[in-house]
């Protein structure tokens, strides 16, 4: 687990108040929504705001969200790509 990946997991836990959960309990390859972490559309809005605030990366629309929210690992890569851009 690299540093950015860890920070993404910490941001998810903090923003979504997943109390009692630790970063190593989050499967980086599992889907964020539905199965996996089981997040919903309200969580999506919270994450979009968190990602913008913490990492300075904007998720502009649903299409970008679909790509970024596939999994925590996909989200980490999305942030990495857009931070460099």
């Amino acid at each position: 687990m690299d540093d950015l990946n860890l920070r993404v997991k910490e941001m998810i836990i903090q923003r979504l108040k997943l109390e009692g959960m630790t970063p190593d309990q989050i499967d980086g390859t599992a889907p964020l929504f539905g199965e996996g972490l089981g997040l919903d559309s309200i969580d999506a809005l919270e994450l979009v705001l968190g990602i913008e605030q913490v990492f300075g990366v904007k998720i502009e629309d649903e299409a970008a969200g679909l790509k970024a929210f596939r999994s925590v690992d996909a989200l980490t890569e999305f942030i990495r790509e857009h931070q460099q851009a």
């Binding site: 559309s41 999506a44 705001l49 649903e62």
Partner: peptide
């Protein structure tokens, strides 16, 4: 305040 995927805050 904010919006994403049809949900507005």
């Amino acid at each position: 305040d904010a919006a994403f995927a049809g949900l507005m805050r």
